[in-house]
Design a protein around this nucleic acid. Structure first.
Lengths: 205, 205
DNA sequence: ACCTGAACACCGTTCAAGT
DNA sequence: ACCTGAACACCGTTCAAGT
């Protein structure tokens, strides 16, 4: 009972942190509480995130925006070889076959669903945009689809930015209003997201 | 020197808090540091925000989204009579005369400018949507303009949500990427915002 | 009404030490 | 390599007290 080989890992820590965030909010996440949840002393976390809580926040942001166990490893300069692991467990997205607009819509719905799943960590994304292999690849797929739609030159980047802005903004908008008494239910929230997405896509191309 | 009539007020506290947030980030804002900046003991702040830091955060969120000195007073149940003060110092917005699309564009640019001005407090907005008289009136103006554009029924609310989502998302997107080496400069960021806004408006109506 | 000052529980992080 | 435990500076908040 003295020595504790808890089998701690960056991913276990991130997932447990997201549990705490989901249950008690971002402000409820402390290193000590995280240690308790992992059945480990708080200081053990520093062995996996030597730069402390800020580095953990970065890793959580990367995990939320980039599905797959390898995502959090980006912060670790000596773990680059596991980058291709970011392809694991990928939800349906822009990589599916089909016409360009269906691919963009599928990506947008998957991106939104993931942000909604970890909505407690949304405020971490306000000042963090971790560049993971997954995020770069996905962005390239979105821009490729926009190229197929006929966009050229700087319009491709501008349109992609507009789509990312809308998706992220729609989730933030939904979350920040969802405890109001006249807030839309889940079905109506979905409908509003699609309504705006269709309009934006129609205006973009 | 013993007694200290610092002339503390909710608005002074909010403005000083925003200075600290701008300089050291949201994590750098502590009640003790805020007290120092106001030349007052930290505990004096609790006289104006009896519910503590959470209430201060709410007031900051209201101040950022609703210009005017009266904005922060919404949290104070015994200060409702000052609500009409929220009209003070209003930036150009949807209330100007002109065609509906010019009014919406003016509102969107002003909304974005204000969010950008207080970008350090953006993450406070992820889980807070304070309903101020100003925010309700502005929303009504946006929906009115969309009605003039020909939208009817539930489309008005859905289109307004899409516009709010896009504006907020565009600012978050810009801020979270702005320390990357290949980030757009201010002029290009403005251009991208307008590009997406025009597209969304075109698709909406 | 408005502010002070001591106190308490909690926090992030460092560091030396254990295995 | 991986984790512990004590320590330090700092934090939010309560409470009794001052004017």
């Amino acid at each position: 009972m003295s020595r504790n080989y808890a089998g701690l890992s960056r991913e276990r820590i991130i997932i447990e942190a997201l549990h705490i965030i989901a249950g008690r909010g971002l402000g409820g996440l402390s290193m000590r509480r995280l240690g308790d949840a992992l059945e480990v002393e708080a200081m053990a976390i520093y062995h996996h995130f030597p730069l402390g809580k800020e580095q953990l926040f970065n890793a959580i942001a990367a995990y939320v925006t980039s599905p797959g166990p390898g995502a959090g490893a980006l912060d670790d300069p000596e773990a680059r070889e596991s980058e291709q692991a970011a392809e694991d467990g990928e939800p349906a997205g822009a990589s599916e076959p089909g016409p360009w607009d269906a691919r963009i819509t599928a990506w947008a719905e998957a991106y939104r669903a993931r942000l909604l799943e970890f909505s407690g960590a949304l405020s971490l994304l306000a000042h963090r945009a971790p560049r993971t292999p997954h995020s770069l690849a996905t962005r390239a797929l979105v821009e490729g689809a926009l190229g197929e739609a006929g966009l050229t030159g700087p319009d491709v980047e501008r349109a992609a930015d507009a789509l990312y802005s809308y998706c992220l903004g729609a989730v933030v908008h939904q979350v920040r209003h969802q405890q109001e008494e006249d807030a839309p239910d889940a079905a109506e929230a979905d409908a509003r997201f699609r309504y705006g997405l269709r309009a934006l896509l129609a205006g973009l191309v």
